[in-house]
């Protein structure tokens, strides 16, 4: 939710001098820690409890997911480069890096779509067993967050193309970045816990 104009109250006075929207995003991220934490609890509690296969060790493709993980990590790099460009009002570079972030996000999502269809082909559906249910719910929730981020970034990109994004909007880009990096950070945890600690 982006409140574009500063509120009347904000224009007048801000006790800490920190932007309202940035505080909102950090508090939201705090709340998201509990959301992903609860999903992670579900995944870990049910690990090894499926009564029928396929089981994780038969399906998880580590080299493939390493590549998509790398893609998502690099998208975070694009994001910080985008913010740095917008802050110095270099909108040509800013546009480029914002678009690159979104595209890498899309590539990650494509990888996830491939992985999901592959699993379904191998016989693991949402309702097959506890592994399927908890895996698809956890990684699916993360994927949905990535998708929201991609739409958000593309919106910024379109605004930039129309000349409606400048260094005056650096705060908006920074907040988008906070969201994007958090989604990346969640994946760092999921990558290790789901794929490497089978």
């Amino acid at each position: 939710m982006t409140e574009h104009a500063a509120t009347a109250a904000e224009q007048h006075h801000s006790y800490t001098g920190l932007p309202n929207r940035k505080l909102l995003m950090w508090a939201f991220i705090g709340s998201e820690c509990m959301l992903f934490g609860s999903l992670l609890i579900t995944y870990l509690v049910y690990r090894g409890r499926s009564v029928v296969g396929p089981y994780p060790e038969e399906l998880l493709n580590i080299p493939f997911i390493t590549v998509t993980t790398f893609i998502l990590l690099m998208s975070s790099l694009m994001m910080v480069l985008a913010l740095a460009a917008v802050q110095r009002n270099d909108m040509r570079q800013g546009k480029l890096w914002i678009l690159m972030t979104a595209l890498l996000g899309l590539a990650f999502l494509a990888g996830q779509a491939y992985e999901f269809t592959h699993f379904v082909h191998e016989g693991l559906g949402l309702t097959t067993n506890l592994f399927g249910a908890s895996f698809f719910l956890l990684t699916g929730t993360h994927g949905a967050h990535v998708a929201v981020g991609v739409v958000w970034l593309l919106t910024l990109f379109v605004m930039a193309m129309r000349g409606r994004l400048s260094s005056a909007d650096a705060e908006t880009v920074e907040i988008t970045g906070l969201y994007w990096h958090f989604v990346d950070v969640v994946w760092i945890v999921l990558f290790t816990v789901i794929y490497l600690l089978v």
Binding site: L18, L23, W26, I29, G30, S31
Partner: peptide, 11 residues
């Protein structure tokens, strides 16, 4: 700012 740190690290 420390405020952001608190908002994240506490939760």
């Amino acid at each position: 700012s420390k405020v952001f740190r608190g908002l994240f690290i506490g939760p």
